[in-house]
Simulated assay, not measured.
Amino acid sequence: MNISAMLKSFCDAVEQRNGKAFAELFTEDGVYHDVFYGAFKGRAKIAEMIDDWFYRTATDFRWDMHAPVSDGHALYARYTFSYRSTLPEANGARVMFEGVAIMTLRDGKIAEYHEVANTAPAFVDLNFAPERIARIFAKQGAALKARPEMARHLG
């Protein structure tokens, strides 16, 4: 398995709104845990996440992976991710954040994807009211508490 080629295909599929190609990078029972939208299980749901959920309120995606590290079973990579928001309050702003992709690999495919991201700058770029940002972070905190297995990824 060529990790660099897989990560390039991963990013290209998102940028090209190609959910089918993106989902093919995952095992049949793969799960993508999105920092905003939650878990999507199976290739059909993962493809839907890209083709519908990601592009529902955004366009012009850019995703770059940096400094990947893998032992063949786990893959970690820093990333930068940005898009142009179509939400009315964002006024067409370009939103960017950084994070770490955490992948479990099986048979050359992604079995599970998690991410840890600094989303606060994106919410400011989106012109979200402080109360809305507080509700989002409270929801993310509750979701993390409900998944204690993520603690191992966060140190």
Rank of each mutant, 00 (worst) to 15 (best):
A67Y: 12
A47T: 10
N2I: 01
I110C: 00
E115G: 05
L7D: 06
N127D: 06
D34F: 03
E28G: 03
F54H: 10
Y83G: 04
Y76V: 14
N2V: 04
V124M: 07
R84T: 15
P130E: 11
M150C: 10
A111Y: 03
M96A: 13
I133P: 09
W63V: 08
K45V: 01
M150G: 04
L144Y: 10
K8M: 02
H66T: 01
A5Y: 02
T59M: 11
Y37S: 14
E89Q: 15
S85T: 07
A5E: 13
K45Q: 14
M1Y: 10
R84E: 12
E89M: 15
K8N: 08
T104H: 12
M49K: 02
D107V: 02
F40A: 08
A117C: 05
L25I: 09
A151L: 10
F40N: 09
M96K: 13
A58Y: 04
A138Q: 12
K45Y: 00
K20I: 13
V116T: 12
V14A: 05
T57E: 15
V124D: 10
A77T: 08
K8Y: 09
D51T: 06
A90F: 10
T57I: 05
E89N: 13
L154P: 03
V100S: 02
F54Q: 03
V31L: 08
E149C: 03
N127R: 15
E24Y: 03
A93N: 13
R106M: 03
F97I: 00
R17M: 07
P68A: 11
T104D: 12
F54W: 09
L126M: 13
R135D: 12
D29L: 06
K8E: 15
K41M: 04
A58F: 04
E115Q: 15
A47K: 00
D71L: 00
I133Q: 07
H73A: 08
R78G: 09
